[in-house]
Write a protein that binds this DNA or RNA. Structure first.
Lengths: 259, 259
DNA sequence: TGGGATTTGTTCGTATGTATT
DNA sequence: GAATACATACGAACAAATCCC
């Protein structure tokens, strides 16, 4: 128990590497598709391939990197459908969070949350990545305040994956209204109005998601098969392709997709 | 692509080991707290420690085993609070599942589900472990039918962890009503009545959970201070205590709380 | 207290598989 | 299409920590 303070971070190098990579991924220092060779990571962080490998495995389990056998790891590139699913999942989870929190926050917790919102406001006009990180932190702090490790873990994981999808699909957005919604959520929680908190949270996340997930087809690289489909019948490829690329398909409905 | 069929299972030895361990854990062949030394696993499955280690890491990430630094891995022993959280989480997730499925099931899918329920019924009077596995499979099959890999993955993981908690806390139960509830859920899904499906699913899971976990709201750890409260004002302690403890009779097992 | 046995943590060499020219 | 270059998969061996007597 002699030197207790800085131990945790150095004690488990894997965790610290994971943290670094997670942050780099979400802040777009590492863009989706970037290859992550074990050697390079090991050298960069001063560890052997084993440690780098374990860190990659961990991130793969979390869905932030894609690990193909014998082909190495790269930053994940969530599909549009995955993104939609992740936000739906996140809504379900955070619904549970706020329903547990409503009316049960201590004054200290409320103060801490208001302080965090103040930080969000202060960071309003700085780098996009920072305000996104702070906005996400607000949600993860809420999850932590439930006191449930399992709930916290899953909310954290889903939030990070949502953050990754935002780097892919989101356009720059003013975070002003998001901050106001955070305040509304906190107010509802403080008053103990669970239903209102749930409703606002749902609206809030739907808002965040829709800022990002508006037009699926334009952004995403279709597979080679899909790109070639209009050319397959021997007609004029360019015109057919142009027509085909307008398919709206924003339907968020339920059709079961690919088997 | 010559020898294609059996490749997947053998190609990724880690996955197959994970599957075996998962099944063993949920069917109580490996009880919570059982140590899982790397050497032993490696020898048992005919692999080196590296592979065994990776399998354990995977299961640790899934919450089925507990991995303490320098102290090895053992089958997880979820606390009562974790169990409650897991079932809450599961309700949230499956709510999402049925809301997506309601009215969108193909006739083939409905037939497959009815067939599965028939299997559940057939296994009614066999080993407990089997009927539990089949009951869980019903839920995971539903998740798969959403066509969403992420949703499927999380439902699967949570269901397994719930299964582990059931091995810890559940008393033997007649699975009859559970089967009937499965039928009700399927009927509601077929009719496209999302609200009914959600309601029945919620009731169903609450039922399953309560068979295992004694009522959540009442039991919460009374601290020593609380227990002593009736005695604090100098009056007759016994009578005051008797009056104060008129909480519901949880006929059995109010002793699950050891911090 | 301490020392030996056992188990885990990590590195690194070799083999195998994939991409590229 | 073959050979080269490179990254990963796996295991043996060493180092460190823990447990037990």
């Amino acid at each position: 128990m002699s030197k207790s303070s800085g131990k945790a971070a150095e004690n488990d190098r894997i965790s610290s590497i994971c943290d670094a990579l997670r942050q780099a991924i979400i802040e777009q220092a590492l863009k989706p598709g970037t290859k992550l060779p074990e050697d390079t990571l090991g050298e960069r962080f001063g560890v052997g391939r084993t440690i780098a490998r374990q860190a990659l495995a961990q991130l793969a389990a979390e869905g932030l990197v894609d690990h193909k056998r014998n082909k190495g790891a790269e930053v994940a590139t969530p599909s549009w459908e995955e993104a939609r699913d992740l936000f739906d999942l996140r809504m379900s989870l955070e619904r549970l969070v706020v329903s547990r929190l409503a009316g049960n926050l201590t004054p200290e917790q409320i103060a801490a949350l208001r302080q965090h919102i103040a930080k969000e406001r202060a960071a309003r006009n700085t780098r996009e990545a920072i305000s996104v990180r702070l906005a996400t932190e607000f949600h993860t702090i809420l999850a932590e305040m439930t006191g449930s490790p399992v709930l916290t873990r899953y909310v954290l994981e889903i939030c990070r994956r949502c953050g990754l999808t935002l780097t892919l699909y989101a356009r720059p957005h003013s975070s002003e209204c998001a901050i106001n919604e955070h305040i509304e959520i906190l107010d509802a929680l403080e008053k103990g109005d669970a239903q209102a908190a749930i409703r606002i949270m749902h609206h809030h996340l739907e808002e965040v998601a829709s800022r990002a997930l508006i037009s699926p087809t334009v952004v995403q690289t279709p597979s080679l098969m899909d790109m070639l489909a209009p050319y397959a019948n021997g007609g004029n490829g360019a015109r057919a392709a142009e027509a085909a690329s307008k398919s709206p398909k924003t339907g968020r409905g339920a059709k079961n997709r690919k088997k």
